[in-house]
């Protein structure tokens, strides 16, 4: 029993700062290749952004990490442990939290009910995200705690989805196009929130079409197009690479 922590989070944690590693991921739907050999490695405590247009393979990558689709080939390693093709609930229990792109709240449940579904305290860990903290961060959710989630506005639903995922106390968060379709003012709130969880030391993988938003918060960027990575590096490196910026970011 003493060993639980070390078997769950192998020694790799000290030697390798990469919390998540994807190697050569390939995924196709009905013969069409959607991702063609994507490799990523995400360091602990970093906020990495996958940037690219619609259909570039961002969401597919996220779904593969979460076990919500089965890649054709390639491996996904989380804290040194191969999680490729594991059941989503096991991946979630390993510490990965997923916020899907289409604000998937449970519409017939109340706000409180939605948070309750996400509630989970990982073993051997302190409960970082409590209902009180969530409510402090998103006061509107407290205000509407007994309303059905389906009646909330798009921005509120997005906050609720994020809050629900945080209730599971993940240490690595996947945010799939969180700013999509939100009013500028809500995007700003979202940005503030992202800065808060960064301060907390949360590792984040953010997928975005909104380049400006992504670059503002990310430490590191991956630019994907047509299912493969066209650039990877720190934000500074990206800033200096005029060609990539011109070609993919239309800056």
């Amino acid at each position: 029993m003493v060993n639980t922590i070390s078997t769950y989070y192998p020694v790799a944690i000290e030697m390798n700062p990469d919390i998540l590693k994807i190697e050569n991921l390939v995924k196709s739907f009905n013969g069409n290749t959607v991702i063609n050999g994507i490799s990523l490695s995400i360091a602990q405590g970093e906020l990495s952004a996958i940037i690219g247009p619609n259909g570039a393979g961002k969401t597919t990558t996220m779904l593969s990490i979460m076990g919500l689709n089965r890649p054709k080939s390639g491996t996904i390693t989380y804290r040194g442990k191969d999680i490729t093709g594991h059941a989503p609930f096991k991946i979630a229990r390993a510490g990965i939290g997923f916020v899907p792109e289409d604000r998937r709240v449970f519409p017939d449940l109340t706000v409180l009910g939605n948070l309750d579904v996400g509630r989970r305290t990982p073993k051997n860990k302190s409960k970082k995200w409590t209902l009180e903290r969530i409510y402090k961060l998103f006061p509107r959710l407290q205000e509407f705690s007994h309303r059905n989630a389906g009646t909330l506005s798009g921005g509120e639903q997005q906050m609720l989805t994020i809050a629900g995922t945080l209730m599971g106390n993940p240490d690595f968060l996947l945010l799939d196009e969180p700013s999509e379709g939100l009013a500028p003012i809500i995007v700003k709130v979202l940005g503030e929130f992202i800065e808060v969880i960064k301060q907390e030391g949360m590792t984040v993988l953010l997928s975005e079409q909104n380049t400006k938003f992504a670059l503002k918060h990310a430490d590191r960027a991956y630019i994907v197009d047509n299912g493969s990575i066209k650039f990877e590096g720190s934000i500074d490196e990206l800033e200096q690479n005029a060609e990539i910026k011109k070609r993919y970011l239309a800056v």
Binding site: F89, F98, G168
Partner: peptide, 14 residues
């Protein structure tokens, strides 16, 4: 009730 609307999301929540 959550599983009625989005079972895969319930799974993703652990």
């Amino acid at each position: 009730r959550a599983a009625v609307s989005h079972p895969e999301m319930v799974g993703a929540l652990g």
